[in-house]
């Protein structure tokens, strides 16, 4: 019996039906790709389960054949298409694209925004998604916005202060903008610095210069190599001509 027939026989024994035909690997005659269309049961669990597929893979490996299962989920795909149509129809100004992924029982909706989405709008979008997904018995999901505004994070601000300390607010803004972050205004920056100071991560000296506190340094941690903060700091000092 040839290898393909052996694989097909084992799959049949376990009640697994393939989608399309087995594909060969011309570089390895013991390696095959098996496409399987999975579906979800009433508990929203994948059938056949990964556990079952791994067991079958093991049985086939015992016979000296290495199979790779490629899972396709045509049901999920049509739910995803419908969700996209609904999102683009209801929020044409704000949403560019959407994807649905399901791993284990966790459903995730990935939204690619066209324009900023505020909390109120997000609530409205989530309601719409919830109603739609419930039709398919998907009752829990999370929404992931894929691109938020390009504001520097707290951790990024700390990192810039560490590299340049003691440093003025103007230098911090410059350094962040050089790294292509959007700093909306001095007011925004000053509020950010205030938050960092009140949480004990940075200290402000009399001349309005900022440095990391010991707690801040410890929290930020360090790394070795070319990107080490020590090296970046030396380079920053050299640039400033001190």
């Amino acid at each position: 019996m040839d290898k393909q027939s052996i694989i097909e026989l084992v799959l049949k024994e376990h009640g697994i039906s393939t989608s399309g035909r087995l594909a060969e690997d011309i570089f390895d005659d013991k390696h095959f790709y098996v496409f399987i269309d999975v579906f979800r049961n009433s508990d929203n669990l994948q059938v056949p389960s990964n556990k079952k597929l791994n067991e079958i893979k093991g049985h086939i490996a015992d016979l000296g054949i290495n199979v790779e299962f490629i899972l396709t989920d045509s049901t999920k795909r049509s739910i995803e298409d419908g969700l996209r149509a609904s999102m683009l129809h209801s929020f044409p100004e704000n949403i560019r694209n959407s994807f649905l992924t399901i791993s284990g029982t966790a459903a995730r909706v990935w939204l690619v925004p066209k324009a900023a989405i505020n909390d109120d709008l997000l609530k409205e979008i989530n309601q719409k998604i919830g109603i739609y997904l419930a039709v398919f018995d998907i009752n829990h999901f999370s929404t992931e916005l894929t691109s938020a505004a390009n504001l520097p994070s707290r951790i990024m601000c700390l990192s810039v202060i560490r590299n340049n300390s003691p440093t003025s607010m103007e230098t911090i803004i410059d350094a962040l903008r050089r790294r292509h972050f959007t700093v909306p205004s001095e007011d925004w920056m000053s509020r950010m610095l205030d938050v960092l100071r009140r949480s004990g991560m940075i200290i402000r000296s009399k001349g309005g210069m900022y440095s990391l506190s010991l707690a801040g340094l410890k929290a930020l941690g360090t790394s070795k190599g070319r990107r080490s903060p020590d090296i970046i700091r030396i380079l920053a000092l050299a640039r400033s001509g001190e």
Binding site: S19, G20, R21, A23, F35, D37, T72, R77, N97, F99, W110, V112, E144, T146, S147, A148, N150, P152, S153, I155, M156, R179, H180, F181
Partner: peptide
């Protein structure tokens, strides 16, 4: 092999979306 061409057409779009998610997070770190 039952993989529709529209699905293949989507691969780079998905890859781009998820790659940007990682890149945007990475620069913030």
């Amino acid at each position: 092999n039952n993989i529709n061409i529209t699905e293949a057409h989507d691969w780079p779009v998905r890859a781009d979306t998820w790659s940007s998610v990682i890149e945007k997070t990475w620069v913030q770190l």
